[in-house]
Each structure stands twice: as C-alpha cells, then as structure tokens.
C-alpha cells in the first residue's frame, strides 16, 4: 500500500529510502526530499506541543498529483517524526482510498518499532544508512500488503 518508505536522519539525509516501482526511484527521492519542507514546517509549528503530547504523527503532508509519470496515481505523503528528530515519510498511492488515517498511523508505529530495533543493534552506528534485513522485510511487507 505504501509506494515509498523513507527514514530521514535528523540532519535531513536519508537513512533509508525505498520505493516500490524502482524504475522511478528518482522521482520519489525528489518527492520525499521536498516533503521535508512540510515536515520542518509542521515540526516548528507544533514545537513543544508535539513533544508534550507525544504525538509523533504529522498527518498528511501534502498530496501531489503527477499524471505524467503515474497516470493513475495520486500520491499522498505522510510524515512522522520521532523524538530524536528522525523522520519517517511514507508515500501512499492515494487511489487506495480505503486507507484510513488510523492505518497509516499504525504503519508508522510499525515502522518506528522496526527502526528502534535497528537502533538497538549494537553493530549499528547511529547515523549510518540502514542495511538491515529485518527492516527491509518489514518495509516490504508494508509495501505489498493488500487492502
């Protein structure tokens, strides 16, 4: 259901980014990158309230439509930011209207848990790109899961 999943470091470089139609990876990179604008905006707008409420989910960042590359896809980007300012961005094919906000939330939570597992790995250096098979397979499961 997710078309692209990205984990972005505090410094805004990608720790992990994968998209399902791999031939158009670049587009997703650009897309995720620009969505950081909105993530930043939301974080600064929420500011302290976000931390206090322990609400990590940023909601819909903004929808886009690009019929040239994806004629039948409208893509929605959702954002999520952890306490350590690591951001998760998910691009969802918005023709998939059955996807509700709650499901997106739970997907993010799943992603967050998996990311925490990666961080717990003593051989993982925080800040390095994520090369974890477990994480990979979790992302894959989120991408192919049919609704």
């Amino acid at each position: 259901m997710a078309v692209c999943v990205a984990v972005i470091a505090k410094e805004n470089y990608p720790l992990y980014i994968r998209s399902i139609p791999t031939e158009n990876e670049l587009k997703f990179h650009y897309m995720v990158h620009t969505s950081l604008d909105v993530v930043d905006e939301k974080i600064s707008a929420m500011g302290k309230a976000l931390v206090d409420q322990r609400e990590l989910y940023l909601g819909l960042l903004y929808p886009t439509e690009d019929y040239k590359v994806y004629p039948s896809h409208q893509l929605c980007r959702y954002g999520y930011v952890t306490n350590s300012k690591v951001k998760f961005v998910m691009v969802v094919d918005s023709s998939n209207t059955a996807l509700r906000d709650n499901e997106i939330r739970s997907m993010f939570r799943k992603l967050h848990n998996s990311y925490t597992d990666v961080m717990c790995n003593p051989f993982y250096n925080p800040g390095d790109r994520i090369h974890s098979r477990a994480f990979d397979s979790m992302v894959t499961s989120m991408m192919i899961q049919v609704c």
Partner: peptide, 24 residues
C-alpha cells in the same frame, strides 16, 4: 481547491473518461 484539483484528475482516470491531452 488543491484537493479538488488532484481529486478531479484522479476521478477522471478512475472513471476512464477520455480527456484530450493537455485538456486537464
């Protein structure tokens, strides 16, 4: 408006309405 525009484009595709190139 932005939602609507995206949505319309989306709906036209979904309904398979024939649209001349560029019209949208």
């Amino acid at each position: 408006a932005l939602e609507l525009l995206h949505n319309c484009v989306q709906e036209l595709k979904l309904l398979e309405v024939s649209v001349p190139p560029g019209a949208l």
